[in-house]
Design a protein around this nucleic acid. Sequence first.
DNA 1: CGCTGCATTGAAGGCGGTCAAACTGCGTGG
DNA 2: CCACGCAGTTTGACCGCCTTCAATGCAGCG
Lengths: 239, 239
Amino acid sequence: MIEPLILNLQARDSVSAREAEVLRSMIVREHRFVVGEDMVTEGSRPSYSTLLLDGIAARYKVLEDGRRQITALHVAGDFVDLHAFPLKTMDHSIVALSACHVGFADHGDLKRVTETEPHLTRLLWLLTVIDGAIHREWIVAMGRRSKKSHMAHLFCELLMRLQVVGKTNNNSFSFPLTQAELADVPGISLVHLSKTLRLLRDEKALDWVSRTVTIHDWRELVRLAEFEPNYLNYYTESR
Amino acid sequence: MIEPLILNLQARDSVSAREAEVLRSMIVREHRFVVGEDMVTEGSRPSYSTLLLDGIAARYKVLEDGRRQITALHVAGDFVDLHAFPLKTMDHSIVALSACHVGFADHGDLKRVTETEPHLTRLLWLLTVIDGAIHREWIVAMGRRSKKSHMAHLFCELLMRLQVVGKTNNNSFSFPLTQAELADVPGISLVHLSKTLRLLRDEKALDWVSRTVTIHDWRELVRLAEFEPNYLNYYTESR
DNA sequence: CGCTGCATTGAAGGCGGTCAAACTGCGTGG
DNA sequence: CCACGCAGTTTGACCGCCTTCAATGCAGCG
């Protein structure tokens, strides 16, 4: 059941059978969130962290005028709020963008891991640090890439992350967001997002129909995005 | 000598005398970088992490066309590349924006901490997770704030971070960057940055002359920025 | 069959980009 | 001591990307 997490970790470092067992025993109390439901709320102090087993979730902040900015997208195998373990208080909310299947890891158990499992601790630490690396790549995309390149970059990243956890079919994957939701990733208007996606479609780089993204021309997409996957820290790429 | 780090940690959690001693014994091999010098290089696999003792440093990435995006600013008391301990490979470079005084912590010693000091491990983990929280706030600023508000937010954040480590005089602090460098934070042109700063000056919110920022109207700056410091995770704010 | 939510397209306006020129402060050398 | 040069800052002009407003298209569903 926690296979996506194991795959995620194994893509970066070796995981012993015992460590996998520790993780398995730690993920308890499965739960399902429906589309649009908040999984974690800003200001809360959760006593557990949430492992996404299936679905797509987003971290976001809302400004005073109601506009929203998504700061991260999460897929199966991601701990959406592992940072809340050292951090205690949530500084943002997390919403289920599709139906989401999750499991919970109690912070008490995580604390015990830090006391008895140094290597596993470093693996979990690594996961939060990779979140940070993705944040940085997003900052670069927002600051310096064209919107077209930014979107190309996002789809490159999502394809790779989903491939690692086995959630792709060839070069396509389920992506059941609305354009209004996706527009909150680059922080642009729904109208302009629509026009930007049209550019990628016109170049036959990718399609996004009936809630499924299909990448037709990976090479071209990578070129448009200047996509360099080493920030995702997969074995095969950066070592 | 590592007092800024201790102050940084104590602003979030208690640090025992023994833990402080462990940290002190771990920071060895001081070094000074001159303005413009790279402290860490993209693609390297450092065997140590760098603690900034004094000065200002920036993490950045460079695009193919040479444009630069700064993804983080660091001040005294920050570990600029602690994430390189779990992550191994640097996915970006770090440059000294002022003369920088640093100390190094060997990854072997950090590993030993994870094996023998669970609480201290969680503290260090916390530091990397706060970096992530700042990244997210920057993403929100880039996506949804006006440039004026973005700059106001940055100066609010810097004042608070510098206050914690005792690097402010009343409401002013040393900030010896060029405008071209600062423009790489929001990812805008030098020309537009200059015009944006003028707006803040015209409102008498702050001045930035002779390499020193002075905040004249903290209230107004906070209002402009919609600044909510809880993401920095200081005791006094969020708990 | 019409309603509703979502996607698409067009039009007009403003923010931020580039290009270009002038200004300032400071260090250096005549 | 002054003139010059250089690095950095400021301002103006013009243009293009992205915004908002508005209308239309389209599919699913009661």
